[in-house]
Design a protein around this nucleic acid. Structure first.
Lengths: 206, 206
DNA sequence: AAAAACAATCTGAGTAGTCAGTCAGTATTT
DNA sequence: AAATACTGACTGACTACTCAGATTGTTTTT
């Protein structure tokens, strides 16, 4: 079989192609409903090739999760580095908008986090658990920093920063989930969500 | 085989036993990871018996969901009928507490709603979709009623009742989910959640 | 430069296992 | 006798993973 050279920068390597295709399938159909053969066939590769690069299906899943985590965190860091926020409260609002835009842009991949499988796997697989914790810790601590900043500059009232961060993150992530389920049309909730958070965080008027 | 009589009130019928055991397995292990044989073996019944009462595995799942929906709504109605609330805001707070206690009491069954499978099935299976919509509509509209009542009695400010109801429900349900995943210890978030909601809903002090 | 040796990558038929659903026949109830 | 409830061996389809051998890429030797 004639195969394109691959080390010489001609697109993704096969290992990368497998990871990408696996991401699509795991997100869209779930772990159990994805056959290794689905992935292999879709990139024109033999089943065995998948197992050459990833020891087991589970390993492949964890690699997909790790890859997604890294992209998530990288993009978020970029946003935070570029963004200038008037105060802590505006930073919280900015983060909410960013998370929602990220979820819209990576809609398919976010499904990975909104399925039950990874959390189940996390109980038996420490690597999986670590990736999930990394993701949640990253966002929770980012919200927390914004809240503390707001408390210093007076845009946010005194309240437990960590707990409040978790509550806001839960809220925003829940909104994304509702959108995915298509039980409600979600888009219109954004403005109200931001307004609710402002009321929740702002100091009482004096 | 000697079999206990069943129509004569000696415990659940076999059909009911199958439904119960299926609930446990679908909730705990998911649809795809539950084999009909698991259910049958655990109640000492042949595989064929399950298919005698439920045409397919999918039908059985929808029956489980319907059953859960009915219990959820029945219990909630009982709570609402019994509860006396000082005003609309206290009713919202009461509902939050009730939902969390329900989720704790039916922890296993709530997993049914926190898996992705039912929402995926809903896209192809109208009965499944209807049950999910019934559940979400019920809770959303209950919160909405409480908010409207609060707006009449002055305990809640002017805000879009329906959207706010969805936001609060999302928040509370998200809290339950976080608890299930065991990534954070959730219990301690309850007080802060209620405090956040009060701030979100209360009129500005004048 | 060609050949040979070595290493890395890939292949796909094969294995062993699982499981939803069927059905012909048996047991129980009415 | 008829209807209903139940059985469990069987079928057909699927699938994770293996492995012996093929192909390709790189390095060393001649």
């Amino acid at each position: 079989m004639i195969r394109e050279r691959k080390k010489k920068r001609s697109g993704p390597t096969r290992k990368e192609a497998i990871l990408e295709m696996a991401t699509v399938f795991f997100a869209e159909k779930g772990f159990r409903n994805t056959a290794i053969g689905d992935i292999a066939r879709n990139i024109g590769v033999a089943d065995g090739t998948v197992f050459y690069h990833y020891r087991t299906k589970e390993d492949l899943f964890v690699a997909v999760l790790e890859n997604f985590k890294e992209e998530l965190i990288r993009e978020s860091r970029d946003y935070l580095a570029a963004g200038e926020f008037a105060d802590g409260l505006e930073m919280v609002v900015g983060l909410i908008g960013f998370y929602l835009s990220l979820a819209a842009r990576m809609e398919e991949r976010f499904l990975l986090l909104h399925r039950h499988y990874p959390y189940q796997l996390a109980e038996a697989n420490p690597a999986c658990r670590r990736h999930l914790e990394d993701i949640y810790d990253f966002f929770a601590s980012t919200y927390e920093q914004a809240i503390r900043r707001g408390q210093e500059d007076g845009s946010i009232r005194e309240l437990p920063a960590h707990k409040t961060a978790l509550i806001i993150f839960t809220m925003v992530d829940g909104l994304v989930r509702i959108g995915t389920y298509r039980l409600y049309q979600p888009g219109s909730l954004y403005d109200e969500l931001v307004a609710s958070c402002r009321r929740m965080l702002q100091p009482d008027k004096v």
